[in-house]
Amino acid sequence: MTDAGYDEWLDAVGTGDGYYLECPAGHGSLPPRRVCPHCGSADLDRTDLPATGTVETFTICYVGGPDFTDEEPYATAIAAFGDVRLTGVVRGTDPEAVTVGMPVEPATGSNRTTGEDLLVLRPR
């Protein structure tokens, strides 16, 4: 399946060229977007995604869906990157070692069950 807008964004994150969309009021959002979800502005510009984010919250998932049976147990975290947050699977560390406040960088990886690309957060 192709998801125009999202696929290009994920590829860009994978090559270290991640970006987000920013409106004149400074609200951040992620593609595909035609308007800012926070204020409705149609004036959206690409802005570089910060290289480092901070884990705001996380969970260690022991019972995933069918697409994650080969990943369990795994940590999913929400990390703040300036004006946007990203949700990703934490790789590169033991799930038990993830903490709130931990610095992470965005990357891509393969889903271990489906082989599809997914967003990964790696400790920095």
């Binding site: 992620l30 999913t76 949700t87 997914l118 967003l119």
Partner: peptide, 10 residues
């Protein structure tokens, strides 16, 4: 689906 489920969120 794009931003949560694909990141393993149940």
């Amino acid at each position: 689906e794009l931003y949560e489920v694909r990141a393993g969120m149940t």
